[in-house]
Computed example of a mutant assay.
Amino acid sequence: MTNSSATAHSLDDVAVLMPAYNGQADVDLTLASFSENALIHVLIVDDGSTPPIVAPAIPNMQIEVLRMPQNGGIERALQTGIDALAQRGFRYAARIDAGDRSVPQRLAKQREFMELHPQVAGLGMWTQVVTREGKPLFMLTPPAEPNEIRRLRFFRSCLAHPSMMLRVDAVRAVGNYRAAYPSAEDLDLFVRLMARYDCANLPELGLYYELNEGGISATKRRRQVSSTLRLQLRYFNVTNLYDWLGLAKNLLHFVTPYRALQRVKRTLLAPRAGH
Rank of each mutant, 00 (worst) to 15 (best):
T256K: 06
T219N: 06
K220P: 01
L241S: 13
N212G: 03
R259Y: 10
H253V: 01
Y258P: 00
E210H: 04
Q262P: 00
N250V: 03
R223T: 13
D243I: 01
A260M: 09
L261A: 06
T228P: 00
F254C: 03
A218W: 15
L231K: 00
R222I: 11
F254Q: 09
F236W: 12
T239R: 15
T228N: 01
L241F: 15
P257W: 04
W244C: 05
V238Y: 10
H253Q: 11
L261N: 04
S226D: 14
T256Y: 11
P257S: 07
K220V: 01
S217D: 06
L245H: 05
I216E: 04
W244G: 03
Y242W: 15
V225R: 00
D243E: 08
I216W: 02
N240D: 14
H253Y: 15
N237M: 05
W244L: 08
E210A: 05
Y235A: 13
Y242V: 09
G214W: 03
D243N: 13
E210P: 00
L247S: 05
S217Y: 05
G246K: 03
N240Y: 11
L252Q: 09
R222A: 07
T239C: 10
L241I: 15
Y258R: 04
L231P: 12
Q224Y: 08
L252M: 07
L251Y: 06
A248M: 13
Q232N: 14
V238L: 10
W244E: 04
Y235H: 15
R259H: 14
A218V: 03
N237Y: 01
E213T: 08
G246M: 05
L251R: 07
R221K: 08
G246E: 05
V255S: 04
Q232C: 13
L241D: 13
R223Y: 01
Q232W: 00
L251E: 04
Y242P: 04
Q262E: 11
S226N: 08
A218R: 10
Y258F: 12
L211M: 14
L231G: 09
